[in-house]
């Protein structure tokens, strides 16, 4: 019991700073969801049912840009591939949860992966730690998304520049991750591919998914070259 109490405390302390960061993304998501035509209810429902920052932000941005359901879903599926990695890496650490593992799987995403994988490495399997961390992130994500949507629905989008929230949010999300030549090369390749595709076929539906499929190959190629150099 004492052990469990200390796990809960550690999980709370370690999750809090990231929960605040997640709330900031959630706020942006809410504002964007309303811009994309979602209601307060559907914007919040998406957070409750999907609970994925990247999937939701990309989905509402594409919806706002007029993309069709199929191209949005394909893009989200491509984006979700990394959940396979996270799931595979966390499976052993979640194993003691037994049949509850399928429920805990709902919480797998970037931030819980970062915290939990380092916890499992140090202290072994610990579903309680994972539950507390993802529970805090879940609450932060839903509440912040709701407040963002509330804010977005009260303000005049043009006057407050809320339409600018889309590109600016993505720029602020992208930059901190641009570390190392392969990642930077991926981003540059993505910019070139996306601009070329839209130049030759303005407003087409395939730009994002094609860029998402092809640009990482450039990063991969550079990574391979660096290793052999």
């Amino acid at each position: 019991m004492e052990h469990r109490k200390s796990t809960v405390k550690t999980a709370c302390i370690e999750a809090l700073p990231l929960a605040i960061a997640i709330a900031a993304y959630g706020l942006s998501y809410g504002v964007m969801a309303v811009q994309a035509g979602f209601s307060l209810l559907t914007a919040a429902a998406m957070s409750v049912l999907v609970f994925s920052g990247s999937a939701q932000l990309v989905a509402v941005a594409m919806a706002a840009g007029g993309a069709g359901m199929i191209s949005i879903l394909l893009t989200v599926m491509l984006l979700n591939l990394r959940n396979l990695l996270y799931g595979a890496a966390l499976a052993e650490g979640l194993a003691p949860a037994g049949k509850w593992k399928a429920l805990l799987a709902f919480g797998i995403s970037d931030e819980p992966f970062v915290l939990s994988s380092s916890r499992f490495k140090k202290f072994g399997p610990d579903p309680v730690y994972f539950s507390i961390v993802t529970g805090m992130f879940y609450i932060a994500w839903i509440l912040a998304g709701y407040f963002g949507a509330l804010m977005g629905s009260q303000l005049d989008p043009q006057q407050w520049g809320l339409d600018l929230a889309f590109p600016v949010t993505f720029a602020a999300l992208l930059v901190p991750g641009l570390k190392g030549k392969p990642v930077i090369a991926t981003a540059l390749a993505a910019a070139v591919i996306a601009i070329s595709m839209d130049y030759f076929a303005p407003g087409n539906q395939l730009t994002i998914i094609t860029t998402g499929l092809l640009a990482p190959l450039v990063g991969l190629w550079l990574h391979g070259r660096q290793k052999h150099a």
């Binding site: 990247s54 990642v183 991926t186 390749a189 996306a194 730009t207 998402g212 640009a215």
Partner: peptide, 15 residues
């Protein structure tokens, strides 16, 4: 898999 989000986010910004 790890490079995919960078590519998609960049494409969204470009768009």
């Amino acid at each position: 898999f790890n490079y995919v989000p960078v590519a998609i986010i960049t494409a969204l910004i470009v768009k």
